[in-house]
Amino acid sequence: MSETLLSVSDVSINKGLRQLLRGVDFTVKSGEIWQLRGGNGVGKTSLLRAMAGLARVEVFGAINRCEDMLYSGHATALKGALSARDNLLSHPSGMGMPTSAEVDEALGRVKLQGYEEAKAGRLSAGQKRRVALARLFLPSGRLWLLDEPFTALDVLGVKILEERFIEHADAGGAVVFTSHQPADLGDRLNLLNLEQFSGE
């Protein structure tokens, strides 16, 4: 039994006078993992933001999705002045309101044990990305919309994330992410090449 968590039908996105994407059509069911591909500027981030309801551009067409969604973009909402733990405890998305123990466990899952008290501003780019992605190990929405989640991650980090995607999909969730790297998800991965919808 798989449920539709997101349906995008005949969506066009304009940016200024230029038509970025035209006629985008796809559905995401529970248990599926989707990768949006395409060159720089083709509209991956714009489409992902439109699906999250954060359209900075003009969006036409119908986007229906389930209510419990997690969106993580280029801007990670991390505060350099707060510790890794406090950043996650007080994350403004208000999802699940995790406890301290849950947050520490999530930080452990992304291999950041011992960094709970460290100020996020002092972590490396990859570690910051891991803190942001620790949200995926906390109570979160069923539909994950992730913009370039693999950026700055090392090989181990990428592997942890890929395993988490599969775990989440197996538990009835769905993942849509953008990435330039080919993800090692085998036959679980659905590819959507946005070049075919390019408005030009």
Partner: peptide
């Protein structure tokens, strides 16, 4: 700061009215 680091858009997506948030 909240605008630039993405906190505001996360807040806007939180399951409560933005006016309260």
């Amino acid at each position: 700061d909240d605008f630039e680091d993405g906190s505001l858009e996360q807040l806007a997506m939180a399951p409560l009215p933005l006016a309260v948030a």
